[in-house]
Amino acid sequence: MARILAERLSIEFPLYHVGARSLKKRVLSQAARRLRTDAANRVVVSALRDLEFTIGHGERVALLGHNGAGKTTLLRTLAGIYEPVGGRLLVEGEIGSLIDPAAGTDMDATGRENILLRGLFRGLSEAESQTMLAQVESFSGLGEFLDVPVRTYSTGMMLRLAFAMATVAEPKVMLMDEWFLAGDADFMRRARDRLAELVHGAEILVLATHNLDIARQWCTRAIHLEAGRIKADGPIDAVLANY
């Protein structure tokens, strides 16, 4: 049974590599909303503040909010990249994250090498990697280009490869950023089918998006983030009505 549980979940980014002193003066003179100084007198950005939610089996959640509201940070936190600074997080179920399709891609290696590398990133065995290679090969439709360095790919080809690599796994908890909405029409049709399949296969979907149509179509629930806090949380139609 997949489940996500967040209790007073907070993430703060210390601003290390800026001139903290002058910045501090500037931001603290105005009533800053998300920048503040912490106990060690550093300037920190409150990326997520005291989030409380439970996502149960079968729920498909859209994360809505403006740029910088904390959508991607929340996805990364759920994926285990950022450890919570405050509060508690529990994720039950194998996590699959489609956050950045190109992460970990070696531009100088060929498509085929990158697929095998992705297998290693996931911790797959040799045999599993070979199976993955075959699946990605057929889904991406890149054919002979798989033997060419990825550097030479067009944006669309790159997306095909990344998408195919990202979606061959069938995770229980799927975290998705909205990058998949680019690509040529023919591929997008196939991509949507594949995504729909994945989304139905997963026990939990958390999707960060600006696209309200997609949100309405795929999700049952929405969490509206604003400035790192939950502004609204509930059935998708109710949240969208006030969005």
């Binding site: 907070s10 994926a79 285990g80 919570p84 508690r88 997080l89 994720v91 194998e94 229980k172």
Partner: peptide, 30 residues
């Protein structure tokens, strides 16, 4: 409590790192 009551979790899995079948992180008990 959180470690003891985990019947469905595979043997040997600690949930300390993401990537397994569960992941848990509590800022008050790092």
């Amino acid at each position: 409590a959180s470690r003891g009551g985990a019947p469905a979790r595979p043997e040997g899995e600690t949930g300390l790192l993401a990537g397994g079948s569960f992941y848990e992180c509590d800022a008050s008990q790092p």
